[in-house]
Computed example of a mutant assay.
Amino acid sequence: MHWIDPDSLPAVTGVFERFVLNPHGEVDGFVMRQGDEDVLVHTPPHMETELTRNIKAGDKIGVHAVRPRGAALLAAVAVTAANGRQIVDHGPDDSREHPEHDHHKMDAEGTVRLSLFGPKGELRGALLTNGTVVRIGPKEATEIAELLTPGATLAVRGDGIETGFGCVIHAREAGPSLKALAPLKHGKPGPKDGPKHGPKHGPKHKHGPKHDHAHA
């Protein structure tokens, strides 16, 4: 259970637009609109089932959240759906496993709509205007921060997953164009012949009791 009482926090309201994915293909946040502004909200993956069952595009929702310093982000403690249901962060289920998805070598190029952050405000990637989610570890992200700024042109290549909530690429290479990609400085090398890993090709990983909200 989250140590913060959600009712002690003011509710920020907006119109839900779309979910955001982590590198495992799990929902770990969403974008909502406040007037003409995009608002990035982080939610831990263990809230995915309730969020996706109760929230859909166009719904007016409320978010009880904390705001990290130096990041355009709300880290949600609770979300109130349009139907009145309050979805609270009660903490992870220790037996919960990452979902099974096919991983493919994938690339993307486009304009950055939003920078993506972890729950403590650490830069973790970007959302492109075409809807592609790009995920990058925090150390790598600091090396290419200018490419992850809204309005920048970003190209990446890496380990991709397609789900019913969109496409996510865990980048291994990045640059201003697909013709100018470079390996990410702190990144781990990807498979030589395309990704043949993940839950279908190896042991499943469980979220342990020390699981936090950040998924690199």
Rank of each mutant, 00 (worst) to 15 (best):
G62M: 09
G62P: 07
G62A: 15
V63R: 07
V63M: 06
H64C: 11
A65V: 07
A65T: 06
A65N: 07
A65L: 07
R67I: 13
R69S: 12
G70Y: 06
G70I: 00
G70K: 11
G70Q: 06
G70P: 01
G70R: 14
A71F: 02
A71M: 03
A72D: 15
A72C: 05
L73C: 10
L74K: 08
L74M: 09
A75H: 13
A76I: 10
A76R: 09
V77C: 10
V77W: 02
A78W: 00
V79G: 05
V79Y: 04
T80E: 14
T80H: 08
A81I: 05
A81W: 10
A81K: 08
A82P: 01
N83I: 04
N83S: 15
G84F: 12
G84W: 15
G84N: 13
R85M: 08
R85N: 09
Q86W: 03
I87T: 00
I87A: 00
I87C: 04
I87H: 03
V88A: 05
V88W: 02
V88G: 00
V88D: 02
D89W: 07
G91I: 00
P92I: 07
P92H: 12
P92V: 10
P92T: 05
D93I: 06
D93Y: 06
D93A: 12
S95W: 11
S95G: 09
R96D: 13
R96Y: 01
E97K: 14
E97Q: 14
H98D: 11
H98T: 09
H98F: 14
H98C: 03
